[in-house]
Design a protein around this nucleic acid. Structure first.
Lengths: 268, 268
DNA sequence: TCGGTAATAATGTATATACATAATAAACGA
DNA sequence: TCGTTTATTATGTATATACATTATTACCGA
């Protein structure tokens, strides 16, 4: 006869509350339900990088102590973060911040290398240009930057076999990622480099079809005016815009797939 | 002193269980947790149209009776369906199946009329052709149809002001939507028509850039080879593929925006 | 030392209870 | 009859409890 694990009966560790401080700017955090507050504070720690990927977050019974609440309340918050893909749970071991490979099942942030290799073609990356410079007005608008702000500008090509597969034009905010200043991006593409460095991110996509201009046509070895799929992506993490990319895929070489569903018919 | 609402103490209405029947094909429904089973059965009723949009689903205390479980368990299932956008709850009134306008915040199913009108331009719809015919092999593959299957094929144009905005080529499975056979689609576009008829749906998108072929160029009044954004969408509902559309947007007239995020930086 | 078994510690699911909140419906008095 | 008060009802949040499940750790005997 196993009685109870008694998680709620553990000594409460009354001091050392993460949370009660609160009043964050006194504007928000007003009357949120407790499980929402727990969720947002844990999410905040993950997004800000304070708890990096792989980090073990406090056990449920520790959080019940910190927030002086029952285990079910903590469980509700953490379970939601699991559904959002920020946390993974392992029994007996604990709950861990997941690694930020694919943020969402829908229109996930593609690793171009994987994409090319999944086509059975050899992948090659080639950096073209790299420049640290002050942000212009348009850049500041794009990345919501303060007036004097610096960023890194990179232009690179991704090859599938002998043929250019994708042209990448990227801005990285040096406010959000200062380490980018010391990186040449000659051997590693900015995408994977950022993903391994920025604890978590989310993105906004803009997708359109354009004819290749002279520069893009030259770099991608296609005729000017060839239809290209242009994906522009702004990425943010922990309340700060991190990067803006424009990916130009020549013609019909590329197809984006996005799916969202309660339940897909094929599997049921 | 308000004692308790006593939801759990209500007479259990022991007969009339929706659920205990179960054993559905005995292949699945094996050892799902109860709250998952409730979720799936309610979701199934919504997706199949048995509970159409606007329908009031049973009160929590009724479901506790039907499933012989506590209110918290029912609440967990329903709360998840609220998060998925299938159900809306109103206090004192009950829980209702939502109307299926926008299935997901991400890359939602656009109503082209709204899209055009949001640009401040007058909208006009024009059906080009309409045909009931047997499904060819390619169609059957696309919509996962049985061998002899019939469908409706529609071609139509959407105008923004005087200019063609979008070319629509659509197939509708007459197995899933038999009423389509009696509809000319001369005055109402297939999109809105379907949305008002199919209880709920989810979709898979494929997005690419192509040069306009002769037919598309003629209909859209653009030069052949002009870059177009082509969105192909398969939609299913209640385990059945309903429709396949190809929307061709000329050149840079159109931009798709998709966003997914734990929390957007702008708002925090 | 190896390999099996038992204890342990975390999450997973579920219950019964309690009170808060919000919207509707009913009762009631001017 | 109208408008105000009061009761009712369904959802919203939270608690304390219980036991199941599953890795891991610890132990123990051949």
């Amino acid at each position: 006869m196993t009685v109870d694990d008694g998680a709620n009966l553990r000594p409460a560790a009354a001091e050392a509350t993460i949370s009660i401080d609160g009043d964050r700017t006194a504007t928000e955090a007003r009357e949120l339900p407790l499980h929402r507050r727990i969720l947002e504070e844990v999410e905040g720690k993950i997004l800000s990088g304070e708890w990096p990927p792989g980090h073990r977050i406090p056990f449920e019974y520790e959080l019940t102590g910190q927030y002086r609440c029952s285990r079910m309340t903590v469980n509700k918050a953490i379970t939601e973060l699991v559904k959002r893909g920020l946390i993974e749970r392992r029994r007996k071991s604990g709950s861990y911040v997941t690694h930020p490979h694919a943020q969402s099942a829908v229109l996930e942030i593609h690793d171009i290398r994987l994409e090319v290799e999944s086509l059975g073609l050899p992948y090659r990356y080639q950096r073209r240009t790299r420049l640290d410079r002050a942000a212009k007005a348009a850049d500041r608008r794009l990345l919501d930057l303060p007036d004097p702000a610096r960023l890194t500008e990179i232009s690179a090509l991704h090859f599938a076999g002998a043929h250019p597969f994708c042209l990448e034009d990227r801005l990285i905010s040096l406010e959000a990622v200062p380490e980018a200043a010391g990186e040449t991006f000659e051997d590693v593409a900015p995408g994977p480099w950022l993903i391994s460095r920025v604890p978590w991110s989310a993105a906004e996509h803009r997708i359109r079809a354009v004819g290749a201009d002279a520069r893009a046509a030259g770099l991608l070895a296609i005729a000017p005016g060839t239809p290209c799929l242009v994906v522009e992506r702004r990425t943010w993490s922990g309340g700060l815009y991190v990067t803006h990319v424009r990916l130009t895929y020549p013609g019909e070489m590329h197809e984006l797939v996005a799916e969202f569903a309660p339940t897909h018919p094929k599997q049921s």
